[in-house]
Simulated assay, not measured.
Amino acid sequence: MSSKSTRILIVEDETHLAQGLFFNLQAEGFDVEIAGDGESALSALSANGAAFDAVLLDVMLPGKDGFAVATELREQQNFVPILMLTARGRPEDVLKGFAAGADDYLAKPFDLSILMARLHGLLRRMAWHAPVAPTEQRPDEVSKFEFGGRCIDFESLELTGPEKRVHLTLMEADFLRYLVRNQGRIISRKELLEQVWRVREDTDTRAIDNFVVRLRRYIEDDPTNPTYLKTVRGVGYRFVP
């Protein structure tokens, strides 16, 4: 997966950790840059020609923290894959990161091999969403899913409706893909936490509810009275296209 053309931005204010990641990622063949704070990261990511394939984003940064950086990137329609690094690793911090637009997380301190596995996985997921020839597609996957005059394009990471076009983050696309695979079935909040967000600790499930509220803005005519993504009180949700 790694190659010299694959560019990674490390956003980390701890110099020794940033340098350690820099040299290890370079040894893996990545083209790597470092930003020491949130503002520098946003500048690097918005600079002309400075396209990155993934971002390792620390939560605790001087000035704008990682949550604010992720939120601002998504508001700017920048959907670069984000692996968020959190010092505490508490479930609520992880879920807050996902709500901000992160695609994966890793708690500090971490083993380098685990970080590399997560990074390669993130890049594979991005490649998985890239267009491929029909003969290369997995038989259990669909590149597009249409319902109610709407279309989810898992290759371009776009959702189009009668009056809108929304670019999806990897996590939003993964969430929608899980709903499509399990359409008509009641899916518990716990299942969504474990299977989509890979959070297995007992935690507040309100983050899932907030995420669903956001998706409803994309797919429903009236998000307050959903037609497609229905709440099953006390249990979870059901996607009924």
Rank of each mutant, 00 (worst) to 15 (best):
R181T: 12
R150S: 10
V180I: 15
L106K: 02
L176T: 06
V213D: 12
F211P: 11
S113T: 14
E158N: 05
L95D: 04
E191Y: 06
T86M: 05
L112R: 02
C151D: 03
K96N: 12
D204L: 05
L215F: 05
H167W: 07
T169E: 06
L85K: 04
K96W: 07
E158Q: 10
R165L: 13
T205D: 15
E163A: 12
L215C: 08
R185N: 10
A173Q: 01
R189V: 12
P81M: 03
P131L: 04
R181M: 09
G89Q: 04
H167E: 12
K190V: 15
V94W: 00
A102W: 08
N182Y: 03
A207F: 09
K190N: 12
L192P: 02
L176V: 08
G149H: 01
G161V: 06
L176M: 15
P162A: 15
L193G: 12
G148Y: 02
N182M: 13
M84V: 12
V166E: 11
R177D: 13
V142T: 07
R138T: 08
T160S: 15
W197I: 13
Y105T: 07
Y105K: 03
F211M: 11
G161T: 08
A133E: 13
R177Y: 06
W197P: 03
Q195L: 07
F211L: 08
D140I: 07
S188L: 09
D174C: 11
V213Q: 12
L170I: 15
M126Y: 05
D174E: 14
A102P: 11
L192V: 13
H167G: 05
R138K: 10
C151H: 01
E201C: 01
R198E: 14
E146K: 05
A173S: 15
N182W: 05
S113H: 12
P162Q: 04
I82V: 14
M171V: 11
R214D: 14
C151L: 14
M171R: 04
A127Q: 15
I114Q: 13
G97S: 02
E163T: 13
D209V: 15
R185I: 13
F147M: 01
L193D: 02
M84K: 00
P162T: 13
H129M: 08
I208K: 00
S113N: 10
G149V: 06
I187M: 13
H129L: 07
L192N: 02
A102M: 04
R206T: 11
F110S: 06
L95I: 08
E172T: 09
E191L: 08
M84C: 07
V196Q: 00
Q137G: 01
Q195Y: 03
G89N: 00
F98N: 00
V199A: 00
N182L: 08
Q183Y: 02
L179G: 00
T86R: 03
R181C: 07
S113E: 15
